[in-house]
Design a protein around this nucleic acid. Sequence first.
DNA 1: CCCTTATATAAGATAATACTTATATGATTA
DNA 2: TAATCATATAAGTATTATCTTATATAAGGG
Lengths: 114, 114
Amino acid sequence: MLKPQSIQQTSQTLKLLGDSNRLRMMQFIYERECCVCELVELINLSQPAISQHLRKLRDGGLVMEQRKGSWVFYRMNDEHATIELIKEILQSLPSVQGELDELEQDGLNVICHK
Amino acid sequence: MLKPQSIQQTSQTLKLLGDSNRLRMMQFIYERECCVCELVELINLSQPAISQHLRKLRDGGLVMEQRKGSWVFYRMNDEHATIELIKEILQSLPSVQGELDELEQDGLNVICHK
DNA sequence: CCCTTATATAAGATAATACTTATATGATTA
DNA sequence: TAATCATATAAGTATTATCTTATATAAGGG
């Protein structure tokens, strides 16, 4: 049973995840932290569109950003009020691990040692 | 663990529940079937606005309607592909039972014997 | 320093949303 | 069958969302 959260808080989370592109972005970020250029490869959207979605997710507190060199990595914010619900939602989706593997095989994944 | 559903199916559900008024409507309908005039009492929206939200929920397959006399009652569609997820979401919200009780005390609830 | 790569932001077009008011439909009742 | 109650639909409007293209910023490597 999930900790009860306000209607406002919950509907805001659901609105953010109610866009299929953002939902897919969250799937990838849930699997492992991703940088912007990886998400551009994984999702059929322009780089500015990806950045704009990421800003919405960040403004809503769902993800956190961290610059590493010239890349900016995004990861889940495990402190979010509705984090348990978010995880339930993401776990109810078909895995995207295969797509991440493919990215790696194509040498398009970003490994940062900073 | 919830049965995996497609991104499209899931994001459509989340978009429908990503509006605080619709989310509240679903809470009431989840608690017990409600007619339109009850929802108008429970939620601070005009009757046409309520009807329009209900149509969206019905078009998305989240609720089913049933006419009983001059009233139209809406209830959850337990056959919906994402029904398990929907229930998880609704159960993660503060109960609205108190508001339904209040409606009853005010004599504004609709009891239909058709 | 310039040049490139990665990312963000700005500005603008277009479409989708969520209301409003007015009106239509459908059932019940006098 | 006229009046009333419950609900749906239509039309209009204001706001918000989601892209696009162009440009700005920030970091890293010759």
